[in-house]
Design a binder for these strands. Structure first.
Lengths: 337, 337
DNA sequence: CCTTGCCCTGCAATCGATTGCAAACATTTT
DNA sequence: AAAATGTTTGCAATCGATTGCAGGGCAAGG
């Protein structure tokens, strides 16, 4: 009897009955209005607004074999870096009528989740993976999966399209800047050794360092590790202390700088520091951090465009590199004589 | 002919054929195994794993009239504060088998989006709104909408369940702390005047201030406004400068402190500063910021639990308050004599 | 041997929108 | 005037899983 007296929500057929046409016609008015005669179309639109009709997504998705969702998989939603990227991505997807589903690749425990939960064409039309360590080996070319791309990070040895900063060039910019200032002993606070970003940035830094001496400090992109690097730097005999330090993340750079300042070292007089990422806060520090900017929203936007193109069946580039930029601020200067 | 030769993906009926049972039985094995005889169940499970069957969500959702999604609506995804909340929320939802859909309430232009796009039972089973200024007036009790709750912020005059920090108490903690140190002239860097968080915190601050003198600085929670507050403070004649300042967000507190340090003011000797939120970075500054902690992940988790309860049809509390905590660090001290 | 009742299982309707096909009608061409 | 072409619309099948209802099988009780 539901057919006679719609309970709360109008269905396509309710609109049709009201407009005196078939459900097919209503559907066409809504999706390809050009196919329907002017007069009919108007009657239908009137009925639509009178009934307050709203489409049922589940029904449409079932019929059209799509979901209207793109899922972003990230290791740490709480990281503000990813947040900015999601922001750009979400907006771009919304413009195209897609929703953004976000999910962690890590359990609370720190172990990787079963990703196949999301690798499912009935859940998402496309996937943007932002965790270079996700267990994704065997999934590269399976035709029963929705399209997958990686953003920011990528997985070595797996053939997935990539969108990311030109990390190597970013590191080159940083170290070249320090070299240009006259530094010939440069400290590097890196990321986890097996992290692809770390590897690329390290390579870029080494290239640009040329004959300069390099001293490495272990790090993992977190502030805790930046702090440890400060302790390590302070523990060095004065003549082994690099006069300039390039941290592979702004968070490490901040904590490093804070640790040194606490010990009475002044920046940039005694020590130059340069970071990586250009998170919003660092431009408001005193002194303001010189750093390498990643266009975060732009990365998100670009990733969205590319996954949408793939969903639309187009060819997409294997690697998309975005340009880093040197943000010259107050923490770098020529070494003291 | 699709019925005879499944193309890529196994359907329920394919599994059924393979196991020699009906689709209904397969469905029951998967959802209520207790209803099915042991032997049948095993045969079905075998067929399931042999075919690599994966459920089609659109079909199930259509039939069950649900979506398996909860949508979080926020004004600014790029804000790390919200990111942490989403983190807690996403994990809790995942545990219950729900997906987290995120969306901005603001357009690129800064105008509010048409929220009804998400106010749709066919898109989400529940909604967590985190924007106190969203145009939500008329939507409070409509039965054709999925359940809505607000988190962090809320909308005045609209009867929606709320989950948030006890902002008033947080502000009281902050100001009481300054009073206990002996400050009798306190500066407040507030939020936008019509923001509910601002109003609550202001009320709390005033209560705790008692007879102390209060000087207000306009703000909007951003670092830019913190910087402007610094300029305003510096522009005051010395005897009108409050010796302690409570900023309603850590970002403002950071920028404020940075601006003063740049002008040669030392913290906390010349001026005490206390923030609000306890974003991760502030504990790594030098000096480390004293602030009021919001349990961000906990807020997210709690919001998730409550919206899930509502979805399950349970009664839920109208207001859920979480406890703030004073994080005593290095930026507050007794005023100089 | 016949009921009665329980346990399993299958049938078939249902969720709501989309779309290939063809009918019905209008318009143009020959 | 007949034929060809074009436009508009409806019919009915389809997407894939769920579930109320009823029937078959079997055991226990009379």
């Amino acid at each position: 009897m539901r057919n006679q007296s719609p309970p709360g929500r109008a269905r396509l057929s309710d609109v049709a009955r009201r407009a005196g046409v078939s459900a097919a016609t209503v559907s066409r008015v809504l999706s390809r209005p050009g196919l329907v005669a002017e007069a009919t179309r108007e009657a239908v639109l009137k009925a639509v607004s009178e009934t307050g009709y709203r489409i049922n997504h589940a029904a449409r998705n079932l019929r059209k074999q799509r979901t209207g969702c793109v899922v972003a998989l990230l290791p740490n939603l709480a990281n503000s870096f990813f947040a900015k990227i999601l922001d750009g991505m979400g907006r771009e997807l919304a413009r195209a009528g897609y929703d953004l589903l976000v999910a962690d690749t890590l359990e609370d425990s720190g172990r990787h989740t079963r990703l196949d939960r999301f690798l499912d064409p009935s859940r998402a039309d496309g996937i943007v993976l932002m965790d270079g360590l996700a267990p994704f080996d065997d999934l590269a070319g399976r035709p029963d999966l929705p399209p997958v791309i990686t953003a920011c990070e990528w997985i070595e040895g797996v053939e997935l399209p990539r969108v990311m900063l030109d990390n190597r060039k970013g590191a080159e910019l940083a170290v070249t800047h320090l070299r240009d200032l006259g530094h010939d002993h440069i400290g590097l606070i890196g990321g986890p050794p097996d992290n692809v970003l770390h590897k690329d940035r390290l390579a870029g830094a080494q290239t640009a360092a040329g004959s300069a001496r390099i001293t490495g400090f272990p790090g993992d992109f977190t502030m805790q590790s930046g702090q440890r690097a400060a302790e390590a730097w302070l523990a060095l005999p004065a003549r082994d202390r690099p006069g300039a330090v390039f941290a592979f993340s702004d968070e490490m750079a901040c904590a490093f700088m804070s640790g040194l300042r606490r010990a009475g070292i002044s920046v940039p007089q005694d020590l130059s520091i340069i970071g990586f990422d250009d998170i919003e806060l660092v431009s408001h520090l005193t002194p303001a951090l010189t750093t390498i900017r990643q266009p975060k929203r732009e990365i998100g936007r670009k990733a969205a465009q590319i996954i949408l193109d793939r969903i639309a069946g187009q060819e997409i580039p294997t690697v998309t590199l975005l340009e880093p930029e040197l943000m010259l601020r107050e923490t770098t200067a020529a070494p003291q004589r």
